[in-house]
Simulated scan of single mutants.
Amino acid sequence: MLTVHHLRISQSERIVWLCEELGLDYELKLYTRRSDNNLAPDEYKALHPMGIAPVITDSDLVLGESGAICEYIDRKYGNARLSPGPESPDFAGHLFWFHFSNATFMTNGMMALVARQLGGDEMPGFVADRMAKGWQLADARLAETPFFGGQNLTTADIMMGFNLTTSRMFGGADLAPYPHIAAYLKRIGERPAYRRAMEKCEPGMEPKLD
């Protein structure tokens, strides 16, 4: 049985959304962050040596890392229908945004978060520059295509979605300068699978779509 272990207000919401888009039969287990430090509880940390979200279990398999989990689920259970193949004109674009999501875009945000937590009066210039370029690049992509993955929703959108929505609860860009991202999030918020996913993994929380 495929089980998604979701730490509340974390990137593991991606995996719930993916399962809903694929129409899979899966078990969802919710974990609440600790009240003293806002980190994962001990029972979540015990799931995987890294002790961070996301994590899935599938029979005897324990798997972490958003990208690896998305590829595993889409290939094993979704017949790779959310991953354009080499014959698709969207192949290269999909790959770029799938990997850019955590390798660069989220890394920029994490650097900014650490800078704020260290109490600096201003964000280091190179961090601010990297963040601005990332948001500008994302907005430019969505000016050209309806989805990060191209003409259709792919796992690249599953990966990027968290960065543009729930992640901003920890601090992030105002959407006003990015009209194409704002329009994209409106479209995502209208998807039945996304609404089901957020209702299941974050009950009582309004998705951060604007």
Rank of each mutant, 00 (worst) to 15 (best):
Q136R: 15
K76P: 10
K208Y: 12
L82T: 02
P146H: 04
R196A: 15
V114M: 12
G204F: 00
I69D: 03
M106Q: 13
K200D: 10
Y194T: 08
E206N: 08
R14N: 09
T57F: 12
R34I: 09
P84R: 08
L61S: 15
L18S: 11
G125T: 00
L24N: 08
I15W: 05
W135I: 10
G171F: 01
A193K: 07
N163L: 15
L95V: 09
G85S: 10
E27T: 08
L153V: 03
R191G: 08
Y77G: 13
A138L: 06
G149T: 02
Y194N: 10
E71N: 13
E199G: 10
L118K: 02
N102A: 05
K208L: 15
I69F: 01
Y178F: 15
K133V: 08
P177V: 07
C70S: 11
L2F: 12
M50H: 02
G51D: 04
L2N: 11
I9N: 14
H180Q: 10
F91N: 15
L137S: 03
L82C: 08
A143K: 11
S59N: 15
I56Y: 05
L47K: 04
E65H: 06
A40W: 10
K76M: 09
L164A: 07
L47V: 05
M205H: 12
Q151G: 15
S167T: 12
S88P: 12
E43Y: 00
G161W: 07
A156L: 10
R8S: 15
R8G: 14
L28M: 07
P207C: 07
